[in-house]
Each structure stands twice: as structure tokens, then as C-alpha cells.
Design a protein around this nucleic acid. Structure first.
Lengths: 109, 109
DNA sequence: CTATTTTATCGTAATATTGCAATATAATTA
DNA sequence: TAATTATATTGCAATATTACGATAAAATAG
């Protein structure tokens, strides 16, 4: 055992879980917030900003990219990572809809 | 290695990551959506709704509760679990603020 | 008190994640 | 082409997560 039973859940539920999983680590939250904060599009000086090794940062960036939360474009020898507004918009929409549906129906506890 | 370096990130970043981690599994997304959908406050018939064993559901409920996303009240031999609107409000606010800050600064990619 | 019902916990196997040193790859420069 | 710079990949050890059978605990009913 120990393997998530994705086949039993809806596509949407699996997709949502994957997107949230990409943000379910403080380093990746920190990367997203840093990319959001920095005006210009910042490349691998995330490595200088965070107290993690270059391979570890690279791995976290890969996960964020796979989840559609950031995108990277080659820029000389460096790579320019920026936030993918689409991914954020999806999460924003998910929680806004959730909250709306929640207020429609009274909670009992 | 293999242990998350929480001490290097801000309290807020760690808290956000923990909350998102609680939702980073399709079963827990499904539980939240089920609790949201069901008008009355539903107890352990989540077990009947989802294709997972009772101990597994119980474990997932515990994680959601620890993260402040649901709350449970004893009701006879059963337990009534409902969504904690506070937790959802926090996540909703996080992504709304993130999106707002994002639109203020131009992205380059 | 005993049985029943409902939920939680324990123990454990299978798998996934995290982090980094070492190394590889890709683009540029000399 | 060779050296340099920036990033990615590999391999591995430590730890965490997922799932469930077995069992315990809590509340009620008889």
C-alpha cells in the first residue's frame, strides 16, 4: 500500500490536489512569493535568496513548472522563471467558488 | 536528509504550506467537496461515499482537522464533521491577495 | 453491566518526498 | 575549440505519507 488511489477520484479532484501539492512545501511557497514580489523576472538567484542548494531549488522549480504555476524561458545561459498567472487564477477561482458555495448552505457546527 | 527545513522559512510560509498540504491529496479534496455539497452536517458516512477504508478516512479527517479546515463535534456515537469556514477564508484570501499583487507588477515571460 | 455502533489509534508494508554531492548539459565567451 | 556560467539530472540516504487490518475507545441501547 502507500500509493494514492487516484483512479477513484474525479479528474478535477486529482488535478486540484496536484496543483495544491506543488504548493504544499514552504520552499515552494517562498519561491512563489519571491517571484511575485520581484518586479523584474528573476532567474536562478532564487538560489541566493533561499537557504537551499542549487539542485534542491532546481527540483522545486521543476515541480512548480509541472503544476503550471510558473513558466521558464531560456535567457542566455540563465533561465528566467516567472509566475504563470493561469495557475494562480485557477486556484483563486477554486477557493472563491468553494467559499461561495459554502455561504449558500448553512453549516451546522 | 529528507527533512523539510521549516526553520529557514517564515511562520506564514510554513503555515500556508501546511494548510495546502492538508488539501494536497485527492481524497481530502473529495472530503472537503462532499462536506461542502451536503446541506446537513454529515458524519461518518463519508466512509460510504469514498472508496477508502474507515481507518484511512479517519486519518484524512484528522489531517484536515489539524489544518483547521474542518471541525468535528460529538453527536451520540457518531461525530459530525463540517467545514471550518475560517480555514477556507484564509486560503481564499491568500490567493486573492496573491493574484492582486501579481496584477500590480508586470510579468515578463 | 453487556452488546452495539461509530470513530480513533496502532502497527506495518509500500511508496513518495526532501535534500544534496557529484556530475551532466546548454549557452556564451575568449 | 576550451573555458566559463547557469541550470538540470542522477543517485542515494533520511524521512514522510498512504493505506489498511486489527484493535481500542467512546457513546448509547437494552
Amino acid at each position: 500500500m502507500g500509493v494514492t488511489k487516484t483512479e477513484h477520484f474525479t479528474e478535477a479532484q486529482n488535478a486540484t490536489a496536484l496543483q495544491l501539492k506543488a504548493l504544499a512545501h514552504p520552499a515552494r511557497v517562498a519561491i512563489m512569493e519571491y517571484l511575485c514580489e520581484v518586479n523584474s523576472c528573476i532567474c536562478g538567484d532564487i538560489v541566493n535568496e533561499l537557504p537551499l542548494s542549487q539542485p534542491t531549488i532546481s527540483q522545486h522549480l521543476k515541480e512548480l513548472k509541472n503544476a503550471g504555476l510558473i513558466k521558464g524561458t531560456v535567457e542566455g545561459t540563465a533561465i528566467c522563471y516567472c509566475i504563470d498567472e493561469n495557475g494562480i487564477a485557477q486556484l483563486q477561482s477554486y477557493f472563491n467558488q468553494f467559499a461561495t458555495r459554502l455561504h449558500d448552505k448553512k453549516q451546522c457546527c
